[in-house]
Simulated scan of single mutants.
Amino acid sequence: MSRILVTGATGNAARHLPAKLLDSGHAVRVLAHIRPADGIDPRAETVVGDLTDAGSIGDALADVDEVFLLTADDGAAAFAKAAAARTGLRRVVLLSSKAVVNNEFDGFDNPIYRKHILAERRIAELAVPTTMLRPGGLASNALRWAPTIRAHNRVQALFPELAAPLLDPEDLAAVAAVVFDSSVDAHRGKTYTLTGPEIVTVAEQVRILAEVLGRSIEFVQLTEDEAREILSRTQPPEFVRNYIPVQRRYLTITPTVHDTVTTLLGRPARSFREWVHANATRFN
């Protein structure tokens, strides 16, 4: 079994991965910004570091065989620098985004996705076997509504008709675990586009949340100015400038459901409703 460095485990995307790897017999080291890192399986080793700092990444890579890499804002520049100075690294599994695919976004360039394009290029240039995971929207993105659901039984969003085949992050972790449990050659050079099993609109997500949580949830459609003001409270200006054009672009794209999760896991991908049932307490 391998010693695997997992990044992104303190967020939603990879929070399930350390436990799955540990259950398979791997040794797991988690890179976190702070200690203690909430929600990390206590069986995992936790080290403090920053994905945009090559020095701390180099320290975290000591004695590591394989890496699950979250794409940082620097487009994996610091990781690539640290990894290039290492020998013995057997595999990198990169968490990218399906939005980098040209036939979906026609090369639409913006800072929200640019980092994924750069990360894929930089990791591909390393002399390390690589597997790319390209998820679309995650079901856990609905957690951004949790504060207003808890306080006011209300959801505020810009485009109620915006639709996507939302992926359960636990399925993302399960796919990554399958890759790590397999030989390096089994998934070397592969790129896997990952989605949920069905397309759901924002309005449908709110309806499902209300049904599962057993409460009436009001939907409030934001104006673009209101959305910019809310985003500016937590996001940098460049993100705020590009977010609404990106959402408008998604309105023009017919979402595609991919069967990759089913193919790799041998079971259906979990639906948004199933994700809500599993995470209902996070909205209370």
Rank of each mutant, 00 (worst) to 15 (best):
155 V>A: 07
61 L>D: 13
105 F>P: 00
105 F>C: 09
239 F>S: 01
241 R>E: 10
160 P>M: 00
131 T>H: 01
181 D>T: 09
256 T>A: 10
4 I>L: 08
73 D>W: 12
248 R>H: 15
189 G>Y: 08
7 T>E: 04
115 K>S: 12
184 V>K: 01
255 P>K: 05
63 D>N: 11
13 A>C: 04
209 L>Q: 12
254 T>W: 02
68 F>D: 08
268 P>E: 06
35 R>D: 13
71 T>D: 14
52 T>E: 13
86 R>Q: 12
56 S>V: 04
126 L>C: 14
58 G>W: 11
93 V>W: 03
113 Y>K: 05
101 V>D: 13
4 I>Y: 00
266 G>F: 06
40 I>H: 12
144 R>Q: 05
248 R>S: 05
253 I>F: 03
55 G>K: 09
245 P>W: 05
216 S>M: 13
157 A>L: 14
179 V>H: 06
138 L>E: 00
233 R>H: 09
137 G>E: 04
223 T>V: 12
119 A>D: 09
207 R>K: 15
244 I>W: 07
42 P>D: 09
135 P>M: 11
223 T>N: 03
157 A>Y: 07
273 R>D: 01
281 T>H: 12
54 A>R: 02
280 A>T: 11
248 R>F: 10
10 T>R: 06
210 A>K: 13
12 N>C: 07
163 A>K: 15
234 T>V: 11
279 N>P: 10
146 A>I: 10
236 P>C: 01
250 Y>C: 01
194 L>Y: 06
160 P>W: 02
82 A>L: 08
282 R>Q: 09
261 V>R: 01
154 R>V: 03
152 H>L: 03
162 L>D: 04
162 L>A: 03
1 M>L: 02
159 F>R: 03
28 V>C: 03
178 V>Y: 00
100 V>K: 04
84 A>G: 14
86 R>K: 13
16 H>C: 07
172 L>C: 08
190 K>D: 15
127 A>T: 15
34 I>A: 15
254 T>Y: 07
142 A>Q: 06
214 G>S: 06
188 R>Y: 12
261 V>C: 09
198 E>K: 08
202 V>I: 11
258 H>C: 05
76 A>E: 08
191 T>Q: 08
271 S>W: 14
72 A>L: 04
77 A>N: 01
85 A>K: 14
268 P>V: 05
229 E>K: 04
90 R>G: 12
66 E>T: 15
170 E>S: 13
56 S>A: 10
41 D>Y: 09
13 A>P: 05
40 I>E: 02
198 E>Q: 15
142 A>T: 10
237 P>Y: 11
10 T>Y: 01
250 Y>N: 06
137 G>K: 02
126 L>A: 13
278 A>D: 15
81 K>R: 03
146 A>P: 14
28 V>Q: 02
52 T>F: 05
160 P>G: 00
218 E>Y: 00
235 Q>M: 08
95 L>M: 10
11 G>H: 03
46 T>E: 15
27 A>K: 04
185 D>L: 14
69 L>I: 06
19 A>R: 12
11 G>C: 05
74 D>C: 03
124 A>W: 00
23 D>W: 00
265 L>E: 07
249 R>W: 09
208 I>F: 10
243 Y>L: 08
257 V>C: 04
200 V>D: 08
